[in-house]
Amino acid sequence: MNLFRLAGDMTHLVSVVVLLLKIHTIKSCAGVSLKTQELYALVFAARYLDLFVHFVSLYNTVMKLVFLASSFTIVWYMRRHKIVRRTYDKEHDTFRHHFIVLPCLVLGLLLNEKFTFREVMWAFSIYLEAVAILPQLVLLQRTRNIDNLTAQYVFFLGAYRVLYIFNWIYRYFTEPHFVHWISWIAGIVQTLLYGDFFYYYILSWKNNVKLELPA
């Protein structure tokens, strides 16, 4: 465990906690894409299949449980909670996320580290995570006044992957045979997708103006 990876995991944790607190306290999910939340729940479900069969560390197990619980809780809130579900911006959250699940599954079948069920699911989850933010970014472009918590959620979610890239660089130079092309390429694609969001987010933060993403 290196500092970049720990910082990455903590930033990822902060992003889901920020979102969960927002939804739980103000009972609103305005500006939040249910599709992105569903994709993330799928990412964790596919990636953490080895939760009970492959013990890495207490930290690893606890964090997996936290990510699984939080992502499914958020989906539950947005689908089932009688107050929260009414604040869901259904008509603007129209990204056809089925169109990204299938290609990621096919890619997972074609490009994986080993052709086993768990490895294919792992690769699928890595590809899916790289594009899971797309519905949320599209929704932000359509949302007039983006509330701070949602913007912070997206920012931390992007920041965690940037930190992971530093983690991979560090591990590449410190651990022999540490090569994970799948994570590296998908992680870079994922980070690039946040590119313009980061640009406008930092600009709005610097000029102290409301965040606006050009449509």
């Binding site: 990876r5 995991d9 990822h12 990636r47 080895d50 492959h54 890495v56 560390s57 690893n60 964090m63 997996k64 990510f67 580290e113 080993k114 086993t116 768990r118 490895e119 792992w122 992971y164 983690n167 045979h177 994970h180 994570s183």
Partner: peptide, 10 residues
């Protein structure tokens, strides 16, 4: 060793 499938990262 099948080190590739022990994904130790989250």
């Amino acid at each position: 060793a099948n080190e590739e499938d022990d994904h130790d990262e989250l």
